Computed example of a mutant assay.
Amino acid sequence: MAAACARTVSKVGLSFLETPAARRSGTVSYLLGNVGTHGSRRSYGTGGPGFRSKLFSSVRSGGGRVLGCAFLLGGGLGLYQTMKLSVQQHLAEEEKKASGGGLKLTLYQYKTCPFCSKVRAFLDYHGLPYEIVEVNPVMRQEIKWSVYRKVPILMVDSELQLNDSSVIISSLKTFLTSEGKSLTQILSCYPEMKSLNDKGKEVTEYNNKYWLMLSEADNGVVYPQKGMQKEEMKWRQWADDWLVHLISPNVYRTTGESLASFDYIVREGKFGAVEGFFAKYVGAAAMFVIAKRLKSRHNLQEDVRQDLYKAVNEWVAAIGKSRKFMGGDQPNLADLAVFGVLRVMEGLQAFDDMMENTKVKFWYKRMERATLNHEGLSQRASKQ
């Protein structure tokens, strides 16, 4: 609107300059200064009578020309200011989009939960600012307001609740990639499904949670090569259905490792002094027993480390030697999921053993740098 007005003013100015009276007058020469006669322009004070009389005389003799110059100058300045403001607004909008559209994100989590770690890996990589609420795993008072009693939970602008790590990641990735879609609209593409498991307990699952809800054009940008989307979805599901179940049997493999693991959990988690003491020793003993059951349930080998090594090497082999990440030169959602799951073992014996006895080290270090440096933020900004 402002730009149109400025252009109109400029056109009016030009029309004045084209009038016969304006062409006959010498106003422009006066306004620019008689450079040919004096060799340089003279400075005049704005308060002197000589200046006023010459100006008024010039207006009387060639008023159309003066008025045309004024319109032209005003229109040009207006157009410049309008374009400058438009560019500033565009840059501000792009910066806002790159940083997550100005969303206020709050993550309810357990620090050592692999599903929560997956979400943090995604948020960190994409440079999305978020607050963390550490949930007490015993009382869970921090999420007593929620019908959904698991973590992670991501609250958006204190109003919209996102559940399930894979739904959180898929919906946010869709939001960051798509134009004109709200998170509420996107979330409706991942409907809840409630069912009873083998033990008769109600469980909640989500349809389409490994899909990104993109237009054909956006889909081509995210997955430029054939087969990339299916590969990403396959390994994201593999991380949820298989890799994550190898963590507990490995970090609670022996009584000593169980104690070390719970010492880490208590230090990183939200426990009081007395509660932490009981959590460490009672929890370590309980998880040692549970780890044995998990080993049997998932048909793991006697030495569960071998299953961990096999899974990790399978992942590295799927990436291959020609790619830095499964996503190519940049991590994709499968890279972030696997990294998030494995990261929860850092500082424990199982992690050190994995790094020493598998080929995952170089990929893992690249992922660590990518998330710490928020490389996904600059990548998104360059595409916009």
Rank of each mutant, 00 (worst) to 15 (best):
A350H: 03
G200V: 03
V135F: 05
K321D: 12
M354N: 01
I290F: 13
N163A: 09
V203P: 04
P331K: 01
K84D: 13
K84S: 14
H90W: 13
V28Y: 07
A334T: 00
V338A: 00
A3P: 11
A350D: 03
E93V: 07
G101V: 06
T177I: 12
R267I: 05
G200R: 02
S15T: 07
F56S: 15
D124Y: 06
E231I: 03
T254H: 10
K118Y: 01
T255A: 11
V289T: 09
T254L: 04
W235R: 01
E375C: 02
E142T: 06
T106Y: 08
R7E: 14
Q301C: 09
T184R: 12
H245M: 10
K280C: 07
D335Q: 05
N219A: 04
K104N: 13
K280Y: 01
K54E: 12
E216C: 02
E346T: 14
R380H: 09
K226C: 07
R369K: 11
W315T: 04
Y110G: 06
S29Y: 10
S158M: 07
K84I: 11
C189N: 08
K383V: 14
A284D: 01
R380V: 06
Y264N: 13
D352P: 13
G63L: 06
G48R: 12
Y190R: 02
K230P: 04
G320L: 00
K292H: 10
L333Q: 04
C69V: 13
S166G: 10
Y44E: 15
V35D: 09
G62F: 09
S58G: 08
A284N: 04
S86Y: 12
A6S: 15
G50L: 13
D198P: 12
V203M: 10
N299G: 14
S170Y: 01
K321V: 09
L342C: 02
E346V: 11
F351A: 01
V316S: 00
S170W: 00
T37D: 10
K150I: 09
L196I: 05
M193A: 14
K150A: 07
A284G: 01
Y264W: 13
Y110S: 08
T371I: 10
K96Q: 14
K280M: 08
E375D: 06
R297G: 11
E314V: 03
Q81V: 14
L172K: 01
L79E: 12
Q88D: 15
S86F: 14
N163V: 06
D164M: 00
V304Y: 01
G102Y: 02
R369G: 06
I153H: 05
K280A: 05
K104V: 13
S10E: 12
E205V: 10
E179Q: 10
S61A: 13
Q161R: 14
N207T: 12
I290C: 15
F288V: 04
I153S: 06
T112I: 09
N208S: 02
E231S: 08
C116G: 02
G340Q: 00
L14R: 13
S43E: 14
F325A: 01
P191Y: 04
